[in-house]
Each structure stands twice: as C-alpha cells, then as structure tokens.
Design a protein around this nucleic acid. Sequence first.
RNA 1: GAGCCGUUAGCUCAGCUAGGUAGAGCGUCAGACUUUUAAUCUGAGGGUCGCAGGUUCGAUCCCUGCACGGCUCACCA
Length: 484
Amino acid sequence: MSSDVISRYKKAKQIIESGKDAFVSKYDCKNTVREVIELYSHLKPGESKQESISMCGRIIAIRKHGKLTFADIRDQTGDIQLYLDKKRIGDIYDFFDLLDIGDWISTEGYPTRTARGELSIMVDKLALLTKSLRPLPEKWHGLKDKEVRYRYRYLDLISNPKVKETFTKRSKIINLIRQFLISEGFMEFETPMLQSIPGGATAKPFKTHHDTLDMDLFLRIAPELYLKRLIIGGYEKVFELNRNFRNEGISYRHNPEFTMLEVYQAFVDYREMMNLTQKIILYIIDNLVKGRKISYQENEIDINPPWREMTVLDSIEKFTGVKLSFEMTRNKVSKIADEIGVDFHEKLGVGGIINRIFEKKVENKIIQPTFITDYPKEVSPLAREHSKNPNLTERFELFIGGIEIANAFSELTDPLDQRIRFEQQLYNEEIETELDEDFIRALEYGMPPTGGLGIGIDRLVMIMTDSASIRDVILFPHMRSKKE
RNA sequence: GAGCCGUUAGCUCAGCUAGGUAGAGCGUCAGACUUUUAAUCUGAGGGUCGCAGGUUCGAUCCCUGCACGGCUCACCA
C-alpha cells in the first residue's frame, strides 16, 4: 500500500474515533455550485453578501496558508473556492487537516469575492460526507494512461474535463434523438436482445444458452426483423435505440457492443428516410452546439444542408478514377479490383466486389456529409430492388468524416423475393445460422411499403465530439481482465 | 489473428545510446505562512523499474517467452 493510502486510512480512523462519520448516509444540499456562481456573479472584489449557502462537493484542491486555507470543491455543475479562516471556525479549521483532495464534503457559509476577484464561500460549517482513501490522479497533467483511463473511467471523468464533456454530449444526443422521434409520432419499442436466429445483418453473433428452455440463443446483431414484425402488426412509425452485439474485431470504429438506432416507417421509401436522417442530425446539432460547422480530427465538416448525394459507382470513379458498371463481367471487375489492390472473397459476385472496392478505396475519404446510393443487391439482402435497375437496391448510406453513420433502404416486402435473398445470403456468407422462417411467415401476412433506417449512435457521437476512437465515446470499453 | 510501439514512485515523465540495483515535477508526510488559485519556502518519506526465464561477476538497460495496453492492418453489408 502506498504512503498516500496509508495516511488517508489513518485520517479516516482518526475521524471515526473522534465520533464523526466518515461515510455518512445523506445530506440535504440546498445549492449547486452553478446556482451560487450565477446568483453572486455581481459581487465585486472584497464584497460579501450575508446569505447562507449550503453546498456539497468533492475537494479538488487545497491551498493552505497557515491560519487561512483555500480549497476548491466540485459538484456536477462546476467548481467553487472555499475560504476557511481559522479565527472564524477554530475547530472546523483543525478538522480540515484530516481532509484530503477527493473527499466529499458539505459546507455552509456566505458568498464573498476575494481581493483577487475569486467568488468564494466564507465557510461557517463544514462536514465530511465521504472519505476518499485513494489519491486522485495529479491535477496538472491529469490522467493520460489510456489503459487506466478506460479501465477506471471514473478517474478519467474526474481528471479530464473534456472526457466528461464528451459523455455529457452523448447523453444529450441520445435524449435529443428520442425527443425528436417521439415528437414526430414515432413510438419506441424494445425487441428481443436474445434471439434464436440472429438476423437483420451479417455478423458473427455471441452465443449463449438458456437453461430452462434448454436452447441456444444469440445476442442480437440487429433488431431489424423484429421491428418489421411491429410494422406488420400495425404500428406505422417505430424505433428502437439500444445495444447490438457483434462478435468481431475491435477497431477505432468497431466495438463488440454498440448502440444503434433503427427506425421504420410505413408507406414511405428510402428517399423519405434520407429526409428523416437529415432532420434527426440537424435536430441534434442545432440543440447541441452553436452553428452547423464542426471540426472532426483534421477536418472541418459542414453539416448545413443540402448534403451531397452520389452513387456507389460515381464515388468510386471520383476517388479512384476507375469507371465500373454492374453490367461488367465478373472477370473484368475482379481484374480491376486486382489492379487497384483490393482483395476480395472468391464467392463475391460483381456487386460484392464493387461494394468491396467502395469500402476499401472510397469510404474513409468521404469527409463532408454525403449520401451514397445505388448499392448492389448482392450486399443488401433486406432491401427492395431498385425500380430502375435490378442489380441495385433502393438504399443509401450516410458518410461523415470518413465513417459510415447511417444505412437505410426501402424495405423488401415481398416474402418470395425475401426467401430467395436469404438463401443466397446463407450460401454466400458461410455464417452458421438458419433461414428465419418465422420472419418469412410474418411477411406473408403482408408488410406495408416501409422505409427503414439505422444510425450508428457511437459513430455519430464520435463525429459530434471530435473523438478519434469509438472507445472514447463508450464509457466502459471491454478490456482483458487484469490480475492485481 | 499479424506487425510496430509501450509498461520505471499515487499521477506525469526522465534515465537505458556504451550493463555497475534509480531521478525530477506534482501529490504524500513534518514544519513556516491571513488573499491563494499549478500558492510559496524548508526538510523527509516513497520503487519487486509489468511478470518469468536466459546471458553476465553484476540486468531497469542485452536476449527469449508471457501478460496487459496503444497504434496500424486483417476481420467487419
């Protein structure tokens, strides 16, 4: 045990032996720091106001000057300085010697502005709420070690104000999305996270087992097929905003569990989903930051519409100079892929290879908000065939900052076509799963024309908070366990 | 899964080029101090140098393996 910890334990013992509580059960905190700062912003240096203030907070700095001590405390709303004068509060002043940075305290006093211009509380009463037994990371350099920051995120939140800002924004973004969709007449539902056939996407699922039913279950990779059942059931505007799980690699934009918004609306197509996507993101940005320009990593991104729209083929031509067509032979397309250094699975057809070229050569270059359209049917097993070209689907993806943010399509409502697509998918993907007959059955009862949209919330938060890695917008990212 | 890099005091980091069992700042502890806000000044304590082997008279330093992490790639509609 370090000397810091030992000394804190000693102080805690001393406090308890003196008859005080080092871990009290509650306290009625009447004022927040922000309130106090706003209420008394008018005080001039040297001026005081004889009004009693009662606050709670964590000690984040102590500056002792003999018979005078300054301490900064922090609550959720901000930081404020305490002014302790031994002449005014002899016993409390001595008691304060047993307190450390990190301790939670309650305090009462009156507001005053010091000669140096710092709004402070002249302390009359002060009590310990919770003793902190471990030292917090150093105040000036903060906590930098990424392993410690991710493993002990609470320390990261205490030490790095920007981190706290990021997660505050994340919470607001999620709240704004719900607020917007509900105001537009959508209803939020919760569909199974444990599914017997993981569908709605192609990804390796996490497997688990239910003992009583004695059946294998999978953590969902997407809620899609269940939300569509709700459309079939007669709800016309539905959404779900919750976690998906994919048992795949971790990268700056992939985490095994991630948060997804899925929205379905009856009687509309993917063009309307495009409008909705834009409306959601504009609603967020207008309620979150000033203006519609944000900087993401090295780039300035202009969220102000209209957003660019480009087909998959046009975007490939723009960024690689290569002209492709879905009417080309597989031989020709695969040769081109080889030439520009894109490898691909041998089972892929023309559409699959073109999609692969797009992913490898284009995606991360699309910085400004751009809707990419006309995705090949081969890689869109749940999307309706394009009305003008049977090789394509009515689908778009939205890219911002080089990251795929949204994916949407006019939903495939034809159960016969859906069966064929599922069968092709099972053949192509080598995923150990079975055809979801129950979903086909649901489609057979009739799904109205429907537009569907998925937005990757973690990635959207990355863009909105200028975070380079998805782990910076997930509070507790997964780590290997570490023996201590 | 692969490559590269990292792991030294509570935190942030030096030291390793050329092997001789470790330093700084902040924090801690003791003392001084009635207007500080990275307070200041004086002094003290604090280390299994990630873990395990190997080479060596001697390893934080060189070598091997392992653990954990980071970045990049792979995987990922």
